[in-house]
Amino acid sequence: MATANPNSALYLYGIVAAPGPRHLNVVGLDKQPVGVHVLGSLAFLYSQARQERYLASRANLLAHEAVLETVMNEGHRALLPLQFGLVVSGWDQVEQDLVKPHLADLLALLQRLEGKREVGVKVFWDPQQELQLGLEENPALKARRDAMIGTPLGLDAVVEIGQALEQLLEQRRQHIAQTFTATLGPLAGDRVEGELLTENMVYNSSFLINWEDEPVFAQKVEELDRAFQGRLRIRYNNFTAPYNFAKL
């Protein structure tokens, strides 16, 4: 177990229950070896900080995540990931600012995450394809839309048909979201809905599931893919540090 120089800056990755990993063989940011420092009932994953601030580049983010995933893969599944870029002056600061005021909450979070894992589902569509499918299922609206093609329209008519088409798309998006939540939600102990990050994203949720239930969850995701007949692109992340369920 490594011990940090008390006078050097530290980069923190996450927290597990003490004593933590005993033989951790992983490098973190700046290619620094990752060590474990115990403060009472908590064990902190850290490395020596070689910068005052860390750019949120792809390489740095991946290095941060790799440390957490390595520790989880080695059996420390109840892990509280700390935000990227957290540099502290020393262990006294960690104890005063984090451990003493929040110890009970941190221990409760660790207990909650025991035997759990976070998985994520993001769903993307082709809005033009989906709009066309919606119009085929709504002949009256399709006839209205088709009748306007090539015809000079006033502003009110343009706004009216535009709103009708937007409503149709939103109804279809809600149907997709509700179907995914209704299918996957019962398999999870908790769910966090994320923002729709692009125009083509129609669903973004993270689920907290039992570790051993992941194959069943993955099978349900595949069944949803088949149910929508390949219309959707589903990005399923079956293993990630539980950022969405480890917040104070």
Rank of each mutant, 00 (worst) to 15 (best):
M1K: 12
A78M: 07
L29A: 05
F217V: 01
L82S: 10
G90V: 10
Q171S: 13
V87H: 08
A108C: 01
Q132T: 11
T179S: 06
T240D: 06
F245L: 07
T240C: 08
L24G: 09
P33I: 10
Q167P: 00
L168P: 00
H23V: 08
A56R: 14
I161K: 05
F228Y: 15
A63D: 13
T183V: 11
E52R: 08
E212H: 14
N138C: 03
L86E: 11
G14N: 11
R144G: 03
E195Y: 02
R112N: 14
L197P: 00
N138D: 12
T70S: 12
L98N: 04
N200K: 14
S89E: 15
V88K: 00
L45M: 02
Q229S: 14
E118V: 07
G189Q: 09
H175T: 09
G230V: 02
N25K: 13
E160K: 00
Q171L: 08
Q171D: 07
V216W: 09
Y13T: 12
P242S: 10
L187C: 03
T183M: 09
W91R: 01
Y203M: 03
H37P: 07
K31D: 15
P21I: 04
P242C: 05
V216D: 14
L24A: 05
K100S: 09
E130K: 07
T151A: 13
R144H: 06
V158L: 15
A9E: 13
L55H: 02
A177E: 00
E223P: 00
A18N: 04
V26S: 10
V94R: 08
V34S: 07
A108Q: 11
L196F: 03
V99D: 09
E69A: 14
L82R: 06
R22F: 04
A241E: 01
R173V: 09
L68Q: 08
A177C: 08
T183A: 14
V38P: 07
P21L: 05
Q83W: 03
V221N: 08
N204F: 02
T181F: 00
R173L: 03
V87A: 12
E222F: 06
I234F: 04
V121C: 11
I161S: 05
